[in-house]
Amino acid sequence: MASRAGSTGIDASLYRREGQWCTALVDVSLGTTSAQEAVDSLPGQVGKLLGSQQASDADIEALTAALVSAEGHASPVARFVAVNNGEVVVDEIIDGLKVEFADVDCGPFPNLVALARARGGQFPYLVAEAGKDGGEVSLYHSSVKGADESRGVTGDPDEAHHARKVPGQYDEPKNQSNTEEIWRRNADELAKQIDELARENYVRLIVLAGDVKAREMVAGMLAVAHKPITSILDQHTRTGGADQAAFAAAVQERVDEVLGRDVQELSERVANRSGSGRPELALGFDEVVAALQQAQAATVLVNQYQDDETLTALNAEPWLCGEDSGDHAESVMGSWPAPEVLLRATALTDASIRYVPDGVLPEGTGIAALLRWPNASESAS
């Protein structure tokens, strides 16, 4: 995929690309004959919808070619595809999302709302499994199944266990020292791979499992900045009898803990900024729009999706305005449902967006924004 919409923000470069955009959100679940038939009919069905919206032949061909089933994924599962100028720019599987009818959209900027809702709040994390003869480390994203990238460290098993193979010699200090030096080298190499992946991807969690001694060595060799985000599982996963289901459940528990802390932190930040005239918090649709127009919003928090509102998208700052506004007439691109325009403005002002559960925002508030700087009039009062 080209980008992910998550708690760290939306990839603004997608909105800066010129030309027509076409997006499709479709059900690609398998499991029954009728489901397979439905997936097989998607290219024709979506192609007709794209044609009715004046999509180019290149866009239709590229998008429909990407509409393949999601084998190996439990139902329900959806596929989101975004095409720009005949190029597939985003192609993502969204597990757990039930799509009743194909949602197809064409316009001058991509409609990424469905992807943002599914991916909002996600974060990258690493799972490392250490052994005395090496190990593996894989990069994951919290709302995406499957590893995004994996790296391995493979030592020489015969070399590592040579002292054990010579009867009566393993206890000799020289042989034992040589063997432990091999283990240390393998651990050091695995720690370097973990640190590199963690730095490159700004991971927020490292889960470390494997052989007891090996994982202890790896943990001790990690960069200082990564030790606080490392969680060690007391599981030796690099054995034939390892319970992989229990391991996956334990990893998911650590991921859920991070997600839970995120929501709790957002709730506390909203509560802390709600008093004394709340100069650092925008509450409600109009205030959030005003904050985005000034690039003042740091994090937009959405509890209700504002589907009944419409906004005007602009091709230059401030990127959006009310549908009835007479301002910025020279920059008007057109009017769209508010969630699409809000998401675009959030990205283009380098803000982040979170779709939050009930209880984070004050009762009766569907949308809010944590501000980069306080409102002058309220902070002065």
Rank of each mutant, 00 (worst) to 15 (best):
D350L: 04
Q53A: 08
R372Q: 13
D156G: 01
A191Q: 05
L348I: 07
K48N: 13
I229R: 00
D105P: 05
A225L: 07
R273K: 13
L42K: 04
D95I: 06
E87H: 06
L342P: 07
E216Y: 05
K192I: 01
M217Q: 04
R254D: 14
A246V: 07
A5T: 15
H73K: 04
A187H: 00
D103R: 04
L222W: 04
G6D: 15
V46I: 11
G359H: 05
A351F: 07
R273N: 15
A191E: 06
M1E: 13
L126Q: 07
L14I: 04
K213P: 03
E323N: 06
W183R: 00
V212F: 07
G155V: 13
L197D: 05
T64W: 06
R269L: 15
E149Q: 12
S325W: 05
E378G: 00
L208H: 10
D234I: 02
R372G: 13
G19V: 05
F80M: 08
S29H: 06
I194G: 02
A295F: 12
D234K: 00
P339G: 10
A82M: 07
G210H: 07
A347W: 08
V46G: 11
S267C: 02
A102S: 14
A62C: 09
D307G: 11
S331T: 14
G72H: 05
P110H: 04
R238K: 04
A329Q: 10
T179R: 01
D103L: 08
A78D: 12
A249Q: 13
L49E: 12
E92I: 06
G359T: 12
G322E: 14
E280Y: 06
R273S: 15
V99K: 03
D350A: 08
S142C: 08
G19S: 06
N85D: 15
S267T: 15
A74E: 15
Q252A: 14
N186T: 00
G131W: 00
E61L: 11
A295K: 04
D234H: 00
W21P: 08
E136Q: 07
R372H: 12
V88S: 03
R372P: 13
A214H: 00
E92D: 12
A242C: 06
S52D: 15
G210Q: 03
P279Q: 02
V68G: 12
D59R: 00
I182F: 10
E71Q: 09
L222G: 03
L361G: 09
H162F: 15
G168C: 01
S352G: 09
G240D: 14
R238Y: 08
D307E: 14
A191W: 02
R273H: 15
V203W: 04
E159Q: 11
A380N: 14
P43Q: 02
